[in-house]
Amino acid sequence: MIRRVLAVFEPFILMLLGTVVLASVLPPRGAFAPVASAAATVGIVVLFFLHGAKLSRAALIDGVRQWRLHAAVLAITFLVFPLLGLLLAGALSGPVATGLLFLTLLPSTVQSSIAFTAIARGNVAAAVCSASFSNLLGILATPLLVALLMDQAGAGVSAASVEAIVLHLLLPFAAGHLLRPWIGAWVTRQRRLLSLVDRGSILLVVYTAFGAAVVEGLWRRVSPGDLAVITGLCCLLLTLVLLITLLAGRAMRLRREDAVVLLFCGSKKSLASGVPMAGVLFPAAQVGIVLLPVMIFHQIQLVACAMIARRWGAAADSGTGGEAP
């Protein structure tokens, strides 16, 4: 069991933790701070441009055929999760509460949702479509939900944020997708490049965000007790959503393969989308503390879903997992 848990902590997660430590010890200051911020912005733009180029229109068209499954995933991602976030965020206050609520407004993951679906012997094609739909819709839905649910807390989407969303997220994504006929095949072949941009941009944004928060006194405002509370609430949130997706799959009488998709795509939240979106939606000094719940939840969901996927995959291979989970 210990080996299984440790196996989930891939090098990227260790790099993420190392980046937080680096930002805590050597945050960007003085003339280097705007340089690091500009580099993070460039990374966000390139990231969304490449994701737009990678998105297949054929996958979108094929996915319409499983509309009940995709609608259920989207409903859990953008309706059930936010409702739970509103309830649980009441246990916290300030930017940490904002971060927990922001976590629940994010789209689903892509890579890990598909990977865990494959390990659990689920419908991989449907997982690709559901995760892609969630991320595509999230570019618009997450900022709108932030504006709707966080406005009273002073974290609504301002005119400057709207402009940043359009320039840094929507336009690069649309440009990449429009250029897909010419560069799509090349982008698809450059998996290492896309992975490098994915991870590099996340690490850069995390470094600048946490660095700015550290300069503003992040670790004086967040105590070990606060971290314990955030971790506990993230565990509770994931447990509730896993139960909801499991029961929803049974209530909808989904095939086992599709119920697996609902559980893994519906219960996940994207760090890859959350980090750049937080960098656009929140003030620089607030981004680091807002991202704390997102980073903690991300690691918890990887550990929990990896163990579930391996167990279900083994059951399917042995012939004991033929029915819906």
Rank of each mutant, 00 (worst) to 15 (best):
S134I: 08
A272H: 00
V46L: 14
F264H: 04
L137K: 04
T245S: 12
L167S: 12
A272V: 07
G211E: 04
R180D: 02
A141I: 10
V294A: 03
A89D: 13
A59D: 15
A304R: 07
V290F: 04
G122R: 06
F264K: 00
A284Y: 08
P143M: 01
R189E: 14
R189T: 09
A147R: 04
I244P: 07
V20M: 12
V157Y: 04
E163V: 00
A306W: 08
A213I: 03
A304H: 00
M1T: 09
V42F: 14
R311K: 11
G99R: 07
G138S: 12
G52S: 02
L136W: 01
S158A: 03
F12Q: 08
R4Q: 14
G322K: 10
C234M: 05
R311E: 14
H177N: 15
S112M: 15
A306M: 11
L204R: 03
L101Q: 08
L101W: 10
T239R: 14
A174L: 12
R253N: 11
V287M: 05
V275N: 09
F81H: 10
V25M: 09
H70V: 02
W219M: 08
L103S: 03
E323W: 13
L271W: 03
G156L: 05
T142F: 05
S161L: 02
I244M: 15
F49D: 07
V64T: 10
P143Q: 04
L271I: 13
C305E: 03
G321W: 01
G52E: 09
V222W: 01
P82A: 10
E323H: 13
T19S: 07
I139A: 08
K268A: 12
S130P: 05
L88H: 04
P95Y: 05
A53V: 06
S93G: 14
P107K: 06
T245Q: 02
Y207I: 04
L100G: 07
V280G: 00
A228W: 05
S270R: 05
M277H: 00
S273N: 11
V96T: 05
T142W: 00
I296T: 01
G176C: 02
D258N: 08
G154H: 05
A118F: 06
S267M: 05
T77N: 15
L243R: 13
A185G: 15
A7M: 14
A58G: 15
S132N: 02
A213N: 06
N123V: 11
C234V: 02
S161A: 15
V275L: 09
L17K: 01
